[in-house]
Amino acid sequence: MNRYVELNSKITQTLVKSSKIFIEKVFNFVVSVVKNKKLIWKRGECYLTEILHSIFFIGFIHRPKIYPEEVLQEELGLILRNKFPDAFQMYKTELPSRPPYSVLLDLVVEVTGDQNVSAVLDKLLELNADMHVPTLQEDGTVCGNDFSLASTVVSYTYFQNAHGKTRNYFGASVSCRGEKARQIFIDLSCIKTWNQNVAFAVYLASNDQESIRLPQKIYSTAYHMYNNPPSGIARPIQTYHQIRPCLKCVKCFPNIEFFPPYKNNSKVIHWEYGNCAEYEAVSKLLNTESWVNDRVEGTDLTSLQVFLQERKHRLAENLGNNQYEF
């Protein structure tokens, strides 16, 4: 098939536009916060390298494949190639650890501070609006954001008892479209990124078994991003609203105190275990607060290794089907 025709499909064009604007806006954001002394350049380099790696990888496993030079304008592409040469090579041979929006979330939290939840959400809304990709409908009207790399849900979790409170740990839902791409990132997270107790919770819930037991006094709140485009205006008004946990989060983490609490509405959940923002947030809490992690009960390391081997097989199959060799 002609390369121009391949790249001209609506889904592919949306991914190209989303990738381009994501990279441009995050690069400008990093430059601005470094200039304002809210971030050192070395940290900014780390975030940008990981974001470029992840976005280029998503393009490379897409059908048809999307290459960096098809995403970046010539001037910015030259700047980024000079500053981050590794990112322009390793996406073809090394697997990323997480989706790009999860990296952006960590960047925002580092700049704003983890204790000010409102500041984190406000900065995310500001960046989301800047990265708006309008979608033209058949009738000529423009609908809400078709930003295919955005996480629609972010959450934060913390542990608190009579002796004090931990930091807030933030997580994002899996931020890429397509069932296989989501599977790839969930499997990568289970294998190489998430805390092993969280990976085992995914295994137990996926097999309809009783999940791990986290220590009491872990709290979690999630927010869903909504687009509210006014009539006749292309740029949407985006807002975050607190949401209740889904049944799959409650099954994985039955003794977390969710706010708002779970309410059974018999809603059919189509996504698989591991897709929600809570997994990443809880994993960060357990990875950082080792004394909380040590109190987790119910993890069987032998069964966990069997599960991870199964996920490695699924990962290899999905990557092979997308013509990715590693």
Score class of each variant (00 low, 15 high):
Leu204Thr: 03
Ala205Lys: 02
Ala205Glu: 05
Ser206Val: 07
Ser206Phe: 05
Asn207Ala: 14
Glu210Leu: 12
Pro215Glu: 11
Gln216Glu: 15
Lys217Ser: 15
Ile218Trp: 00
Tyr219Arg: 01
Thr221His: 04
Ala222Thr: 06
Ala222Pro: 00
Tyr223Arg: 06
His224Ile: 15
Met225Ile: 12
Met225Lys: 12
Tyr226Ala: 08
Tyr226Pro: 02
Asn228Val: 09
Asn228His: 14
Pro229Ile: 08
Ser231Tyr: 14
Ser231Pro: 03
Gly232Tyr: 01
Gly232Cys: 08
Gly232His: 05
Ile233Ala: 09
Ile233Val: 13
Ala234Trp: 08
Pro236Leu: 02
Ile237Thr: 14
Ile237Gln: 12
Gln238Phe: 02
Thr239Met: 12
Thr239Asn: 09
Thr239Ser: 09
Tyr240Ile: 01
Tyr240Val: 01
His241Asp: 14
Gln242Asp: 13
Ile243Ala: 06
Ile243Trp: 03
Ile243Phe: 02
Arg244Trp: 08
Pro245His: 10
Cys246Thr: 11
Cys246Gln: 08
Cys246Tyr: 10
Leu247His: 08
Leu247Arg: 05
Lys248Asn: 13
Cys252Lys: 10
Asn255Asp: 07
Ile256Met: 04
Ile256Cys: 08
Ile256Gln: 09
Phe258Ser: 00
Phe258Asn: 01
Pro260Ile: 02
Pro261Lys: 03
Pro261Ile: 07
Lys263Tyr: 14
Lys263Trp: 09
Asn264Ala: 02
Asn265Asp: 15
Ser266Asp: 06
